[in-house]
Design a protein around this nucleic acid. Structure first.
Lengths: 135, 135
DNA sequence: TCATACTGTAATAAAATAGATTACAAATTT
DNA sequence: AAATTTGTAATCTATTTTATTACAGTATGA
């Protein structure tokens, strides 16, 4: 299983980018995604922490982008919703008596680092605007 | 969360590659990984389905590689343990009345396809032998 | 000013997935 | 024949993800 944070966040931002002046409510956004508004607000909290959006409380409140969609890359979104891509580690500590067990996590980490660099490069070449324009 | 299938399978194969003549038991392998032998046998079942290893039942039985470690790529392992890399989809069907909701999964899928191509290319350039040689 | 409509956030529950364990039949070796 | 190992099903436990409930705080505007 993989958490839907990236997909949810990108969905939120796509909606916001389509109406950059307006404050959209978490309820409206949740309606487009068919999910609970509280979860939307949680992802928005993360976006705020990263200075991508601002929110206004109270009646007619909601959330809007803090900067143009052209200046937000999918890599920015990736970084704030995943630490890294990994293909996983074994859950338990491997046996340190074993040559392979002793080093496997280090070597997997190196491999995953390389992959992440490539993914980040690719995602940094796509802006939110690029993505939103495909709708 | 992400399943450890890739990491577990790669660990198994690394061990097998270090003793390509011998049949290693699931119990021995599980010892190196500090995990349950039944789970090891399940991943081995997957490897057998993909003609990467063969097993022998009975006393002194176990598993060994069917082909040289140089001829197995990390992409082969990736393909048999993950369908694809995704950064996830929202769990629920999005709202088909919404322009964004209607298309989001398609557009995410396209993005993920592009990423998978790059990852596959990168992984196909690393053989099991290459990986095992770093131990 | 007061009802309304929002956000923010904590606490808890439910659902889904991953991993561990148990059990035992079948196969092979010695 | 005894011992060892795979193969696999069934079940249980742990962990993670998602949903829900609840409510305090804030802004709007009639």
């Amino acid at each position: 299983m993989i958490s839907g944070k990236f997909a949810i966040t990108l969905h939120i931002l796509t909606l916001l980018s389509k109406a950059p002046e307006d404050f959209l409510s978490s309820d409206y956004i949740a309606g487009s995604m068919n999910m609970n508004p509280v979860l939307v607000r949680k992802e928005i909290a993360n976006l705020k922490k990263n200075h991508i959006v601002e929110s206004k409380e109270g009646k007619n409140g909601g959330t809007r982008l803090l900067k143009p969609a052209a200046e937000i890359t999918l890599n920015d979104i990736f970084k704030m919703t995943f630490e890294t891509v990994t293909f996983g580690y074994s859950k338990n500590e491997p046996n340190p008596e074993c040559l392979v067990g002793k080093q496997i996590n280090q070597n997997l980490g190196n491999l995953y680092d390389d992959i992440n660099q490539k993914i980040s490069k690719q995602l940094s070449e796509i802006s939110l605007l690029n993505f939103a324009d495909t709708f």
